[in-house]
């Protein structure tokens, strides 16, 4: 993520920037929090941008973090890839304090990234972004036949599903038999 007024990304938390002062009335400096994904890259995000995430907003409210504490302990999201978290942070910054538009053209078009984004957004409870993402997922199969959908989304056929289930059962049975034999060997 490029450095912006609302946030920066770096390997270590950066110093918070203060909002520009208005000539009419001095604005209250904005609070910033820090998050990192699987890649440990820390993203600095304003409290306003994080309002989009019900999960993070709840964490902030419940934990009563001060800015210093937040800086020392970034919120860890080990289950989210760094580039996906970057997208989420960017979206939150872009839509900070703004009414969300009916369409979002900046969402990734590649299906793999989109599905990862959907999972991340669902986990972080960002309702509006989830709505956009789901719409984008639905658009992927617009006008497609069942076979095409199966191919695009790698949906196994019922026969493939059954075969995989049988295989898994067989494997589990073999493993159980192996464990029993090993236990019998140990007993001898």
């Amino acid at each position: 993520m490029s450095s912006t007024e609302q946030g920066t990304s770096s390997a270590a938390p950066a110093e918070p920037t203060t909002a520009p002062e208005s000539a009419a009335a001095p604005e209250v400096p904005e609070s910033f929090y820090y998050v990192h994904g699987k890649d440990k890259v820390v993203h600095k995000v304003s409290a306003g941008a994080l309002q989009h995430s019900a999960l993070i907003h709840g964490m902030i409210s419940n934990l009563g973090y001060t800015e210093e504490q937040a800086k020392a302990n970034p919120f860890p999201f080990e289950n989210i890839d760094g580039d996906i978290l970057q997208m989420v942070v960017d979206w939150c910054n872009q839509h900070k304090g703004k009414p969300t538009p009916p369409e979002d053209t900046n969402l990734p078009k590649q299906k793999e990234k989109l599905f990862d984004l959907v999972l991340a957004v669902n986990y972080l409870e960002i309702k509006e972004l989830l709505t956009y993402c789901c719409k984008q997922v639905a658009m992927m199969v617009k006008g497609k036949s069942p076979e095409e959908i199966r191919e695009i989304w790698m949906i196994p056929t019922d026969a493939e599903d059954e075969a995989a289930e049988k295989e898994a059962k067989k494997r589990a049975g073999k493993e159980a038999a192996g464990e029993t034999a090993a236990a019998a060997g140990d007993a001898k």
Partner: peptide, 8 residues
């Protein structure tokens, strides 16, 4: 990427 429709 391993994530797909089936993982949703």
């Amino acid at each position: 990427y391993d994530t797909n429709w089936c993982h949703m």
